[in-house]
């Protein structure tokens, strides 16, 4: 009985941010990026963090990834405090960050061989092949990053992250550098992949449509410095979602305008 309660507790607060503050020491003095962030993310949930540029949304992601340490406060993942980066929290970087001297296969393999080091060579290779097949890149396995398009690079980045079978997938503006058409295709594919893997995901974005389309919840952040969570919006649209059907869905449009209103009315960024 007690165990059951504990498990449920785990599922509900899979990723937990408790009173997180983040201050950076810069040449101009101390800069308070984040103030008092509290957030709980459930297992299997897709959460987007949206806000104007410079509001510290990437900082939140880097904190969960363990690439940054909070000035004060605590972060937990699956009940354990986050102390350093690890393969249980895979990151898809905005600029793909593939190693240019390795092929797509080798880039993914680098992640697999570390996480599944007890497995045989064949098992590892199969994992790489599966991950690349999942993002539809079986044909480009032996190509180097400079030989493929931006969209394909980002797919390899996603494959590398997913191949680690992470507890949480962290996406840092994953489609920000892509053109609108490629972005839409990859968003659709990401939706399908999330459907298959039931992975917990946190995505940083500045694209309102992307946030509403993909998320279960949207965390809207106020402007920095001393940024915080302004509002959290539940996206109760049924899954699987289809972007064409949603375009005429009143709920979708309502959610969309909610986010827009938050960003452009209540927390409009002053013209720089």
């Amino acid at each position: 009985m007690e165990k059951h309660v504990q498990e449920r507790h785990m599922q509900e607060r899979y990723v937990q941010l408790e009173n997180v503050n983040m201050r950076f020491v810069t040449k101009k003095g101390v800069f308070e990026a984040l103030k008092n962030i509290n957030l709980n993310i459930n297992q299997g949930e897709f959460v987007s963090i949206i806000g104007h540029s410079g509001c510290g949304k990437s900082t939140v992601l880097n904190l969960i990834a363990g690439l940054l340490e909070p000035t004060s406060g605590h972060l937990f993942c699956a009940g354990r405090e986050i102390a350093k980066p690890g393969p249980d929290r895979a990151v898809v970087f905005q600029n793909h960050s593939l190693l240019p001297w390795l092929t797509c296969f080798e880039n993914v393999h680098l992640a697999v061989e570390r996480v599944f080091k007890h497995e045989t060579q064949v098992q590892q290779d199969l994992r790489v092949i599966d991950a690349l097949a999942l993002v539809g890149l079986s044909h480009a396995m032996d190509k180097r990053p400079h030989e493929i398009s931006g969209g394909m690079k980002q797919r390899v980045g996603i494959a590398r992250a997913l191949a680690m079978e992470p507890k949480v997938l962290l996406l840092d503006e994953p489609f920000g550098a892509l053109d609108a058409l490629t972005r839409a295709t990859l968003q659709d594919e990401l939706m399908k992949i999330m459907e298959k893997t039931h992975c917990t995901a946190v995505m940083v974005t500045h694209d309102v449509d992307e946030a509403v389309l993909l998320s279960d919840r949207i965390v809207m952040m106020t402007n920095g410095p001393s940024a915080g969570i302004g509002e959290i919006l539940d996206v109760n649209l049924p899954k699987p979602r289809n972007r064409l059907e949603l375009a005429e869905n009143p709920d979708y449009n309502h959610l969309r305008s909610e986010v827009l209103r938050f960003l452009y009315e209540r927390h409009a960024k002053k013209a720089a």
Binding site: P85, N95, L99
Partner: peptide
């Protein structure tokens, strides 16, 4: 720094960091 972040997230050992990155 991106490559070093990759190394950190993948939790690569020092030898792998030197040879692969």
């Amino acid at each position: 720094q991106d490559y070093m972040n990759v190394a950190k997230v993948l939790n690569l050992g020092e030898w792998k960091i030197v040879t692969k990155i």
